[in-house]
Design a binder for these strands. Structure first.
Lengths: 134, 134
DNA sequence: CTGCATGCAAACCGTTTGCATCCCC
DNA sequence: GGGGATGCAAACGGTTTGCATGCAG
């Protein structure tokens, strides 16, 4: 089944090196430093494939682009409404919430995700500076 | 400020009539029955505008398209991994979660959203039928 | 050797935007 | 009358896909 190609290895390695929840394009830039001839399509195909196989986590949060994470255990995120940056949140996963939801819906539940929206420190400063300038 | 145009009224009315969290395109189809000459751009512009003014809720969940909701109070959703359908979940909003998150991040928190993933009843049946057929 | 995986480029789809015209205040 | 709002169509950005070739098993 899953063939162990150089591209696949390098994509996974580069994703593991980084904690920034990169988009496919950001990862493409990282991987291209080691494999200059890799195609963007290959990056997309492999990210999708590895996510399906549970090797990585696909984070489909608000904002336009999908993001990826080498940490596969469920955890929550906060996204900056200004710049789109995504950080991990260190709060416990609410497993009891799944039971609660299961009791009120006829869907068969697969998983859940909590996403906070906020302003990251850098954008807080920038906004304060811009306001002061007026 | 917000001018009360026919288009704006009709978009809001049609969104209020419906509980299905329509995408911009679905809403465009609904609105076009009453205003055949309305442009898709107008629908997008007004949805964005009304969301910014707190008149409607913009739901940026997983999946590709944004969805909209005339109910503006925070509530949680479940999305079918198969067909993309989105339904409301009748579980209480976790306001204490915001305090918990605030304590562990340097972001200034604006809000939060919980999204469950699952298989909707219709897709459960379809999948069972497809499996039986093999 | 076989067929899955790749590189490349074109297509796709949802969304945004520029512009001339319109019409609400 | 003036400035925001509209309709239209073109542009945009992220993602997917078709195809000929390459390479892992």
């Amino acid at each position: 089944m899953l063939r162990l190609t150089t591209q696949r290895q390098v994509i996974l390695e580069e994703l593991s090196k980084v904690t920034s929840h990169p988009t496919a394009n950001e990862l493409y830039d990282l991987v291209r430093k080691r494999l200059p001839r890799i195609g963007l399509g290959t990056v997309y195909r492999n990210l999708e494939l590895m996510a399906d196989n549970g090797m990585i986590l696909k984070i489909e949060v608000g904002g336009t682009q999908k993001r990826f994470d080498a940490t596969t255990e469920n955890h929550y995120h906060i996204r900056c409404a200004e710049c789109g940056k995504v950080d991990d949140l260190d709060i416990p996963v609410l497993n009891n919430l799944v039971a609660q939801a299961a009791a009120t819906t006829s869907y068969q539940i697969i998983g859940h995700h909590v996403e906070f929206t906020g302003t990251c420190p850098a954008c807080q400063q920038r906004l304060a500076r811009e306001q002061a300038a007026q």
